[in-house]
Simulated assay, not measured.
Amino acid sequence: MSLLSRERYVAVLGASGVGLGQRQGNQTLWLGSVGYIDEGFQAWAVALETLDRLLGEHARAGAELTVVISGHFSRFCLVPWSEQISSPDELQGFAQLCFEDLYGAPSQPWSLVLSAEPAGYDRIATALPQDLLERLRTLVSGRGLRLRSVQPYLMTAFNHFDKSLDAGDFLFVVAEPVRSVMLVAREGRWTSVRSVGSSDSDAALTALIGRESQLQASTSERPLNVYLHAPARIDSHPEVPGVHLRTLEEDRTAVHDCLYVMSRAVA
């Protein structure tokens, strides 16, 4: 194996910027980020152009690339358990119907990934635009790189903090600057996932979590532990009553960039 093939990079596609880092063991050497004007959901095309430029400046052929994608470009849905489903294709079709019930008929194709759960358990489905993924693969291949994985940030963050969350009932909130995603588990089972356009200010998060807690209290008397991860709140951690903060391990670099924080959550 050549030394070049061992190089690993982590790219983060944020709602208004793209960042790139190089993994060195368990550490990340931050190579920089480039901002762009947020043009809404379709901004992913600009994000990929920006990523291509960053890769051209920093990455060498033969390296591996992990891409983390903001909740801004992702959609989420709870897929109920059904005894009538007997194959992976049927499960994908059922998940597609769940998305259409929630979001309406799609105007573009989506790629769905479902969480692995035991029989009888509901699943979390994550959707990314198929065009985004195809153009990303083409871009990475064109640079001579290997695409190691594509991860919605909700899943990256949850996997990073999973072992620190209560095993029973909890609300896990990932609050990016323009969008928050909320995961709810009851007795070790997923019961809800919601994505909401929201600021990550203390006032906005207090209101958001308060509404969600009231909604959950109306469906169950079991108390919820509330966990909050806000990657852009670097200099001042959120102060939200009754919430357990989840932050990444102390970083000794001088980088103050939300995208850098998000890149460090990658295993």
Rank of each mutant, 00 (worst) to 15 (best):
S201D: 09
Q130R: 15
T50D: 06
A95M: 09
A59R: 09
S263L: 12
F158G: 00
A15P: 05
Q24K: 13
L55V: 10
H72M: 08
V240W: 02
E49M: 09
A217C: 07
D166S: 13
A127I: 05
A43C: 09
N26A: 15
V226F: 00
W81P: 10
T219H: 03
E250F: 07
V243N: 03
F161E: 00
P109F: 13
A157M: 02
S82L: 11
S192T: 01
C77G: 14
V79L: 13
A119M: 11
G142K: 05
T253D: 09
F158S: 03
L55F: 10
H160P: 00
L139D: 08
T28Q: 12
S33H: 14
R23Y: 05
G14R: 03
L97Y: 05
L31I: 07
E100A: 11
P152D: 08
H237Q: 10
E212F: 13
D89M: 06
L51S: 11
L29S: 09
R123F: 02
L3C: 00
G188H: 01
D89K: 13
L224A: 00
L51W: 06
S198K: 06
G25R: 14
G188I: 03
Y9S: 03
E117C: 13
A204M: 09
R233A: 07
S198M: 06
R146V: 06
E239M: 06
D166V: 04
L248A: 12
H244L: 15
A267H: 07
F76W: 12
D257I: 11
A116R: 14
G62A: 13
P152H: 07
S86T: 13
V34W: 03
S164K: 04
F41R: 14
K163Y: 01
E187N: 07
A15Q: 11
D89C: 01
V140T: 10
V240A: 04
R146S: 09
E39M: 11
H160E: 00
S180D: 01
L65W: 11
L4I: 01
D202W: 09
L215M: 11
R246L: 15
L139R: 06
G21A: 15
L112M: 09
C258F: 05
E117K: 11
A175T: 02
L205A: 08
Q108P: 01
A232G: 08
D202Y: 08
A230T: 10
E39L: 10
K163E: 06
Q22V: 07
D202A: 08
G168R: 08
I124N: 14
E176W: 05
H58Y: 15
V150G: 06
V12E: 01
W30G: 07
A43I: 01
R6I: 02
V184F: 01
R246H: 05
A167H: 02
H237T: 00
T247H: 05
F41Y: 12
E83P: 07
M155P: 00
L183E: 01
D89N: 12
D162F: 08
L97F: 04
G71Q: 15
A59P: 15
